[in-house]
């Protein structure tokens, strides 16, 4: 096991070094924090005029909901190159011929992207600090929102990794990822329009938005954990199958 993890670690550190040595991650992180920061600041200013509700409903919940929307673009931008660029540059052959298994390649790439997402999320920790200065103390909701965002990112990364394994063109990978994520979002809208209760519930269950909203409101549901982990496993398994074909 230690040897297996060591192999993952070698590829993971290479990926992290590559990412943090390129300006792409910094540009993406800066754009992300500027956008989310601007939304947070706008909500903070607007909250002065809100007489009903709490800071949780007027600032925390909308900020995290917006973060989910932004991650629908940030995650595919991060993952689009993971395997497609390796295919395009033929470096995937180096990995295939090495001692690394397909799972080791997938896990290393997955965690390298997750590290970058965590780096971006760390930048947003300033928001709760600002809120604490105004006496905000509902840290349970903040923690569950962050937990939900991490789980959502993990799901999006696994989806992005899967689409990246399908093609050597990262623009195609990006487009497929975004459309798949939009499709999941539209499931909630479809659920709201259907008159059939059961179909509505099923559609809701398959949408990431439905589960994510639980976390943002501080309601941790076991089936939401199951949903996110199943989502991740499904797409990571799909990536494994896709890499296994190797008929380039």
């Amino acid at each position: 096991m230690k040897f297996w993890l060591q192999g993952c670690y070698e590829l993971y550190t290479k990926e992290i070094k590559d990412s943090f040595l390129s300006p792409f991650v910094y540009i993406l992180s800066a754009s992300f924090i500027l956008l989310i920061g601007w939304i947070f600041f706008s909500l903070l200013v607007a909250s002065k005029d809100i007489t009903q509700g709490s800071l949780t409903t007027s600032i925390i919940a909308p900020t995290f909901s917006m973060m989910r929307f932004v991650f629908m673009f940030v995650c595919p931008l991060l993952t689009m190159r993971l395997l497609s660029e390796e295919k395009k540059n033929h470096t995937i052959e180096l990995l295939y011929l090495s001692n690394l298994s397909d799972w080791q390649i997938i896990i290393s790439k997955f965690f390298s992207s997750l590290t970058i997402i965590l780096f971006m999320l760390a930048l947003t920790l300033l928001f709760p600090v600002i809120l604490s200065l105004s006496g905000y103390s509902d840290w349970g909701v903040v923690s569950s929102s962050y937990l939900g965002t991490v789980l959502l990112s993990m799901a999006y990364i696994s989806l992005g990794l899967f689409t990246s394994s399908l093609t050597s063109n990262y623009v195609i990978s990006l487009i497929i990822s975004i459309f798949m994520m939009l499709g999941l979002w539209f499931l909630v809208l479809s659920a709201a329009t259907t008159s059939n209760y059961i179909v509505g519930q099923i559609l809701k269950y398959f949408s990431d938005v439905y589960h994510y909203e639980h976390f943002v409101t501080g309601a941790l549901r076991s089936y939401s954990f199951i949903y996110f982990f199943s989502f991740m496993f499904f797409f990571l398994f799909g990536t494994h199958q896709s890499l296994g074909r190797r008929n380039w």
């Binding site: 070698e10 590829l11 033929h90 052959e93 180096l94 090495s98």
Partner: peptide, 22 residues
């Protein structure tokens, strides 16, 4: 098509290839 990581230094690249082939 030589499988080279263009953003890596030669020594780092060879060390990486050695490590993943151990």
């Amino acid at each position: 098509h030589p499988p080279l990581y263009l953003t890596m230094k030669v020594r780092d690249y060879l060390e990486f290839v050695t490590k993943i082939n151990l």
